[in-house]
Design a protein around this nucleic acid. Structure first.
Length: 434
RNA sequence: CGGGGCGUAGCGCAGCCUGGUAGCGCAAUUGCUUUGGGAGCAAUAGGUCGGAGGUUCAAAUCCUCUCGCCCCGACCA
């Protein structure tokens, strides 16, 4: 993509409405634009990141055996009356009336809807276990939206729902998702700590939250420092054995933590702020009972299906990743979620030799399968460098008259600032290797 | 929902107290000069001052109402 034709409205100054760094940087890097409180448009740069994150989530859900479908954003109120949540959910649920005076709602979550789909088609234990998920926009009419996409009213969430015959099966489904979550977050290049959590209004008695550790997090988590001994690689290759190991370590959300009754010595206990990016629940027959979602067991008896639900805040993750990966110049995208692999910067487009060298390398990088943002604009070098640092692509390749004379380009790693002069071919190999 | 703050050009702001027909920086456009870390000079364009009502000869400025956004708190992926 040529920068000259890419829709990237960056800002030089900090917008006043943004109070935390991820929000400021997302606005300045031209990723999002606010529509109203807690509701955002995703501009091309932000949309690319959103899609990258979504795809990692999708791959790990598929790998865990969950099947993707897509449920609507608008749901019938009647279904929520059946579960009893239509009145319980309160003002957070956005209610809509259509032209026939039917009650509709913009879905804040999909337990009812998926249960309705399940009960309409599944009759036998032989069709279990089953895990269905979708990645869809949700709406929760938050009292006070804030922190940009981290606490928006409209947000993109992956939600999966498991169906099992019995509690043992449900626990297996739960652990499979646990594994998938460890892998998912690690693949994005961040550490997410799984902590025991309250299952809240949703009910149930087995739940974990996954937190990215960041000082700007809204939650507080406590965990055994032994967690920090696990590498991202280990997490990215997690399996059931690793989950069992981690489950044995103490880790709790604030509301679950009892300082007077904590099994971990105080010098071994970490107390950090976290951004909740995922939560998994087992809630048994909390919905299948009222909604009469039953299957026939081996004895031919109708039994309510055992369920769990598993959420990942996809749009929140975009902000969360920036919170843990930035510096005073801008964003530092982890390689797996970067909107482009490399920024190719021609600092003297008016110079024929520079233009030829840059055009040539642009084509070669693309042929190597890399996503390239090619800054071919007539701008001062400083402007281009500053913008490149702001948008935070993992690599910058700088082409200028000095280098062209010597047949080299400058290759800079955004995260470290490490810079070296390489031939165009060597630069291509270097960047391709990540 | 309670408490506080703010709405003036794309962004950041001044002007408001003490009414007199709107300004600064950045961004944009044009030209010239520049070019290895957010350039210089010159010119141009862009705002019914969030909206409605009121007071007044006259309202961005004073009064009333209203909408929106932000912050703190309680609540939440």
């Amino acid at each position: 993509m040529r920068r000259s034709s890419f829709f990237l409205p960056t800002l030089r100054e900090n917008p006043t409405e943004a109070q935390i760094v991820s929000h400021t940087l997302m606005l300045r890097a031209g990723m999002i634009r606010q529509s109203s409180a807690g509701i955002y448009s995703w501009l091309p740069m932000g949309h690319r990141v959103l899609k990258k994150i979504e795809q990692i989530v999708r791959e790990e859900q598929d790998r865990a055996g969950a099947q993707e479908l897509l449920m609507p954003t608008i749901q019938p109120g009647e279904l929520w009356r059946e579960s009893g949540r239509y009145d319980d959910y309160g003002k957070e649920m956005l209610r809509i009336v259509d032209r026939h005076d039917r009650e509709l709602l913009y879905g804040p979550t999909n337990e009812e809807m998926i249960t309705e789909i399940f009960r309409g088609s599944v009759r036998s234990y032989k069709d279990l276990p089953l895990n269905l998920y979708h990645i869809q926009w949700k709406f929760r009419d938050e009292i006070r939206p804030r922190f940009g996409v981290m606490r928006g009213r409209e947000f993109l969430m992956k939600d999966a729902y498991s169906f099992d015959l019995d509690k043992d099966g449900a626990r297996k489904s739960y652990l499979d998702m646990f594994v998938a979550y460890l892998r998912t977050f690690a693949r994005m290049g961040v550490r997410a700590v799984p902590v025991r959590a309250d299952s809240g209004a949703i009910g149930g008695d087995m739940s974990h939250e996954f937190h990215i550790l960041a000082d700007t997090g809204e939650s507080e988590v406590y965990y055994d420092a032994a967690f920090d001994g696990y590498s991202l690689e280990q997490m990215a290759n997690a399996d059931l054995a690793l989950v069992e190991e981690l489950e044995g370590l103490y880790a709790a959300a604030d509301e679950k933590h009892d300082p007077d009754n904590c099994p971990v010595e105080s010098d071994q206990l970490q107390h950090r702020k976290g951004i909740e990016v995922g939560q998994i629940f087992y809630f048994g027959t909390y919905y299948s009972d009222p909604l009469a979602a039953t299957v026939a067991n081996q004895d031919g008896e109708s039994v309510p299906v055992e369920m769990g639900s598993y959420g990942i805040g996809v749009s929140r993750l975009v902000g969360g990743l920036i919170e843990v990966s930035h510096d005073d110049k801008g964003i530092i995208w982890p390689d797996p979620v970067a909107p482009f692999n490399v920024a190719l910067i021609n600092i003297r487009p008016a110079d024929d030799k520079c233009a030829a060298a840059a055009d040539d390398l642009y084509i070669q990088l693309q042929n190597a399968g890399l996503d390239v943002l090619y800054d071919d604009r007539e701008e001062r070098p400083g402007v281009k460098f500053a913008e490149a640092d702001l948008i935070g692509l993992p690599w910058q390749i700088i082409i200028g008259p000095r280098g062209v004379e010597n047949g080299v380009v400058e290759v800079k790693r955004r995260a470290t600032g490490e810079t070296e002069e390489l031939t165009p071919d060597a630069a291509l190999n270097k960047v391709s290797a990540t």
